[in-house]
Amino acid sequence: MALSDADVQKQIKHMMAFIEQEANEKAEEIDAKAEEEFNIEKGRLVQTQRLKIMEYYEKKEKQIEQQKKIQMSNLMNQARLKVLKARDDMISEMLNEARQRLGNVAKDPSKYPALMDGLLLQGFYQLLEPKVTIRCRKQDMQVVQASIQRNIPIYKAAVKTNLEVRIDQDNFLAPDISGGIELYNGDGKIKVSNTLESRLDLMAQQMMPEIRVSLFGANPNRKFLD
């Protein structure tokens, strides 16, 4: 039985509607799949960027923390250096004051000759030479000459050898020397400095650990005093 034109048109419309429905469903399926993939990719990208941002700020935080530590260390070192400099300045001032007082030692006639005896005899023992030349301040010549006469016999008795001593009257000690003497062997190549300044410097060097403890207290981080 042949279909009428109306039936044909109806079937065509029905097929077109079916195809259109299938196309719409397929399109919706594609859209949904695309939306899902988009959301998955978007989530992945967001998570990746989030991790990158977190890593970036963690790195920045570590850099800032490191910079803070370095800055704090620098500040502590600067403060420590300032403290050490202040301490050294205080010790230098104390030693300078002591040097200024040295002149009073040579002005005391009751003590200076005995001190000269000790400086002279110690110099003899350090040199252990048969001939010794002494340099002194010009104003100390009589004190030194008397000390020589007193101590040559003591030296000879101790070391069992002769000793010839002369005072160098062409080269006196500098005017700014507070007192004491310099001793030289026969050819002048060996020198023993027993001026008051040199003895003070030697004593200060030897007693520096004790001086620091007396002034600033013991350093808990220091195991040895040498």
Rank of each mutant, 00 (worst) to 15 (best):
G123F: 00
K191I: 06
I148C: 05
Q169M: 08
Y112Q: 09
S214F: 04
L119A: 14
G118I: 00
K189R: 13
N77L: 14
K68P: 01
A146V: 03
R137K: 14
K223N: 14
L51A: 13
E29Y: 11
G186L: 09
E182P: 00
E37F: 14
M208P: 02
N104A: 10
Q9M: 07
E36M: 13
K107Y: 03
K107D: 12
K62C: 01
N74L: 02
M1D: 13
F224K: 11
D187Q: 10
M207V: 00
S178Q: 13
F38P: 01
A174Q: 11
I53H: 07
L163E: 05
R44W: 13
D170N: 15
Q149N: 13
D108V: 03
I134P: 04
Q206W: 01
K59T: 12
A204M: 03
R87A: 05
A2L: 14
K26D: 09
P109H: 02
Y155L: 07
L95D: 03
K189A: 14
Q47H: 14
R150Y: 08
P209W: 05
D140W: 04
P220N: 02
S92H: 11
K111M: 11
E25G: 06
N104E: 13
T195K: 07
Q126L: 10
Q149L: 13
I211R: 09
Q126V: 06
D140H: 12
P220L: 01
L3I: 07
L102P: 09
M141I: 14
R44L: 14
A27F: 08
P109L: 03
E35N: 15
K131I: 12
I167D: 04
F224E: 12
Q21E: 12
L3V: 08
A17T: 06
N104W: 01
D168I: 02
V132T: 08
K160G: 06
I152H: 10
Y57F: 13
F216Y: 12
G43N: 15
L163Y: 06
D7F: 00
K42F: 14
L119C: 10
D168G: 06
N219L: 02
M1C: 10
Y57I: 09
A204H: 05
Q11W: 09
I70D: 08
V8M: 09
L121W: 04
V143S: 02
K52G: 15
V83A: 11
I211Y: 03
M207G: 01
N39I: 12
S193L: 03
I53P: 01
A32E: 14
R166A: 14
Q139A: 11
I70S: 03
Y125R: 12
A218M: 09
V8L: 14
I64A: 10
K189W: 03
A27D: 11
S4R: 07
E41R: 11
A23R: 09
F18W: 07
L95H: 04
A79Q: 13
P130K: 11
I211D: 06
N24F: 00
E93Y: 08
M90V: 07
K111C: 05
L173V: 05
L84N: 10
V132S: 06
A98K: 07
V105P: 00
